[in-house]
Amino acid sequence: MRARVEAAPKFLNLLQIRFPIGAIASIGHRISGVLLVLSLPLLALALDRSLHSEAEFAVLRDLVSAPWRAVLLALLVWAATHHLLAGIRHLLMDVGIGSGLSQARTSAWAAIVAAAIVALIAAARWLA
């Protein structure tokens, strides 16, 4: 019996589970947080370089104007915006503001949509 229980399978395939919108906002908060932590050293380095001289600033500017890099930057803008908005949402809910189910659903949608829009605008500006 014991051996069998230890070998018991578990169903936990996240791709086969339908997540409510709040969970999606929350997963996005995690992912964006990781992205921000990973990108911070690079961004700091870029800032440091760009302040060095006009020539280095120009090099960096050309670097980020390539289309695929604009997409990358838009991703970071998304990460920053989503992390901020979802973070504020979590903080408010922690003190009991908007923690009812329907309000929480609305604010989750709002954070997701707003961050996506900001990222799209950023991408459009860089590509233009």
Partner: peptide, 10 residues
């Protein structure tokens, strides 16, 4: 608990 609210959803 991270206030994901999956519990209340279902």
């Amino acid at each position: 608990c991270r206030t994901i609210m999956n519990c209340t959803e279902v």
